[in-house]
C-alpha cells in the first residue's frame, strides 16, 4: 500500500505562502527514499505531511491505505505508536531516562516494555551502543545519542521510518554509521524509509531520490 500523495499543497500564513505546489508522489512498501534539496525547498514540510505529523492545505495523502486526516486523535496516536518510527536531527532523548528506558518509551505506551526489553538490548548491541544502555543521555556522545534514538524508532519494528536530517548534527564518522544502519534496516527488515537530508552523498545512498526545488519535485532527480 505504501505512501501516496496526490496534488499535495502546503501553504502557510496570510497572505498564503505556498511551500509545496501540488506534488504527486508514491512510495512503495519497503522502499528507501531520500528527499533532498536546498534549505527552504520544502523537504522537511513534505516529510511531516507524509509522516502524519501535519495535514496538507490541499490534496490527499494516504499512508498504509488510510488518510491520516480522517483518523481520530486516538487512532492517529495508535497508528504512530504501532506503524511509524521517527528519527529527528536533534535526537530528543529524555534526559531523565537511561538509554534503554528511552528505547522502551514506545513499548511502554503499549504496555509491552517487559516483553521488549531483550529486543531493545539486542538492538542497542546491534547499533554498537550496548554499553550506553544504562547511561543517561548526558553521559553519551552526540553519535551515541542518535543511535539510541534510532533504536527507539526501530524497537516496535515500524512499517514506516521517517528520518529528518538524522546526520545533520553529527560528524562524518557518526553520520556514515547512521546511514549504514538505515541501509541495513531497509535491506534486512523490508522497512519503508523516508530520509530527508541536504547532503547529496547521503541522499544518493537511498534506493530513490526525490529532489525538491522551491516546493516542486525536480524531474532531473526523481
Amino acid at each position: 500500500m505504501g505512501i501516496v500523495g496526490k496534488n499535495v499543497v502546503k501553504q502557510f500564513g496570510s497572505p498564503p505562502m505556498v511551500i509545496l505546489h501540488g506534488l504527486d508522489l508514491e512510495i512503495e512498501d519497503g522502499e528507501f527514499v531520500s528527499i533532498s534539496g536546498r534549505s527552504g525547498s520544502g523537504k522537511s514540510t513534505l516529510l511531516y505531511l507524509l509522516s502524519t505529523l501535519d495535514n496538507p492545505s490541499d490534496g490527499v495523502i494516504e499512508i498504509d491505505g488510510v488518510s491520516p486526516q480522517k483518523m481520530t486523535v486516538n487512532e492517529l496516536h495508535r497508528f504512530r505508536n504501532e506503524k511509524i518510527g521517527f528519527i529527528f536531527q536533534f535526537h530528543y532523548l529524555l534526559p531523565e531516562l537511561t538509554g534503554l528506558e528511552n528505547v522502551l518509551l514506545g513499548p511502554r505506551n503499549l504496555g509491552l516494555e517487559k516483553q521488549k526489553k531483550d529486543e531493545a538490548l539486542a538492538l542497542l548491541d546491534q547499533l554498537e551502543v550496548y554499553k550506553q544502555a544504562n547511561k543517561f543521555p548526558s553521559e553519551m556522545s552526540g553519535g551515541e545519542q542518535q543511535r539510541v534514538a534510532i533504536a527507539r524508532a526501530l524497537i516496535l519494528s515500524p512499517k514506516y521510518l521517517f528520518a529528518d536530517e538524522p546526520t545533520g548534527n553529527l560528524d562524518s564518522v557518526s553520520g556514515n554509521k547512521v546511514m549504514s544502519i538505515l541501509e541495513e534496516t531497509s535491506q534486512n527488515n523490508n522497512m519503508t524509509i523516508v530520509l530527508v537530508t541536504h547532503e547529496r552523498d547521503y541522499a544518493a545512498r537511498a534506493n530513490r531520490e526525490i529532489y525538491l526545488v522551491d516546493g516542486r519535485i525536480s524531474e532531473n532527480y526523481s
Partner: peptide, 12 residues
C-alpha cells in the same frame, strides 16, 4: 522537545 518526541511516538 521531549513532549514533541512523546507525541510523535504515539503518546496522545
Amino acid at each position: 522537545k521531549e513532549i514533541a518526541i512523546l507525541r510523535s511516538i504515539g503518546y496522545g
